[in-house]
Amino acid sequence: MDVVLRPVGEADLGLFRRFAVEPGLVGLDWNGFRDAQAPGRQYAVDGFLGADGGRLMVVAGADTAGFVSWRSGTFDGRTNYWEIGIALLPEHRGRGIGWRAQAMLTAYLFEHTAVYRVQAATHPENHAEQKALEKAGFQLEAVIRGCEFRGGRMRDGYLYSRLRDDPAPELGNGSVTGTGSGSVRGPLAD
C-alpha cells in the first residue's frame, strides 16, 4: 500500500467540516466547535495552496486518511520556516501512515521552497506523535511551557524540528518522487 499526498479537491471539504464539528475527532487538538463553512471559503480562495501555508490530503491505499498542513513562521522577521501538522482519522492511526506523510511533506517543502527549517509541535502526552516525528527525522528541541489553552487550562508543548541539512529518513523502497498528477508518493510497509 502506498501513502500519497495530493492537492485538496472539493470532495475533501466534507472531511474538513467533520474536523470542525466532531468533538474528539482530532484527539488532543480539539479546541471546541469551529466554523464548518470556513474550509469551503478557504478552498475558494486558493485551494489550500497559499503562499503562507497549505494543506495536502493523505491517501493510504484507496482511502483518504486525513491531511497534512503547513504554515509560515519567523523568529527574526526575515527568515521563514514552515510549521507542519497532521490530522488523521482514528481508523488510520498507528499504521505508519503519519510519520511517512510528515516525512514526505517535509521533503516536498525542502524541494519546492527555500526554507532551511521545518518544525512541528505536539503535546507531552501524545507519545505516538512524538515517535512519528522522530521517525520522520525530527529532533526534540524544547518544552514550551504554557503555550496553549486546552481542556480548560494552559498546557505545555514539545517543539521538534528538522533542518534542510539533517538526514532524511528512509521511506523504504527509495526516495520521495513526484508523479505526473502532482502527487507525492512513498511506500507503506512496516
Rank of each mutant, 00 (worst) to 15 (best):
G77K: 09
G77Y: 07
G77Q: 11
G77T: 10
G77W: 07
R78F: 02
R78Y: 04
R78S: 01
R78N: 05
T79A: 06
N80L: 09
N80F: 02
N80Q: 15
Y81W: 15
Y81M: 07
Y81L: 07
Y81K: 06
W82Y: 13
W82I: 04
W82R: 05
W82Q: 03
W82H: 08
E83C: 12
E83A: 12
E83R: 10
E83I: 13
E83Y: 09
I84Q: 01
I84G: 00
I84E: 00
I84V: 15
G85T: 10
G85H: 06
G85F: 02
G85P: 07
I86G: 00
I86F: 05
I86N: 03
I86V: 15
I86D: 02
A87L: 10
A87E: 12
A87R: 13
A87D: 09
A87W: 10
A87Q: 14
L88T: 04
L88P: 02
L88A: 06
L88V: 11
L89A: 12
L89H: 11
L89F: 13
L89P: 06
L89T: 13
L89G: 11
P90D: 13
P90M: 15
P90E: 13
P90L: 14
P90W: 14
P90S: 15
P90Y: 14
E91A: 15
H92Y: 10
H92G: 01
R93K: 15
R93L: 10
R93Q: 14
R93D: 07
G94E: 10
G94V: 10
G94R: 11
G94M: 10
G94P: 08
G94D: 10
R95E: 05
R95T: 03
G96T: 09
G96S: 14
G96F: 05
I97G: 00
I97P: 00
I97M: 05
I97K: 01
I97E: 00
G98H: 01
G98W: 04
G98R: 01
W99F: 12
W99I: 04
W99P: 05
W99V: 01
W99M: 04
W99E: 02
R100N: 05
R100F: 02
R100W: 01
R100L: 06
A101H: 03
A101G: 12
A101T: 07
Q102V: 06
Q102T: 08
Q102A: 09
Q102P: 05
Q102F: 04
Q102K: 11
Q102L: 12
Q102H: 07
A103H: 00
A103V: 08
A103I: 07
A103D: 06
M104W: 05
M104N: 06
M104C: 13
M104E: 05
M104P: 04
M104Q: 07
M104D: 04
L105E: 03
L105W: 02
L105A: 11
T106K: 03
T106V: 12
T106E: 04
T106S: 11
A107G: 10
Y108L: 14
Y108G: 06
L109K: 07
L109A: 10
L109R: 08
F110L: 08
F110W: 08
F110N: 00
E111M: 14
E111P: 08
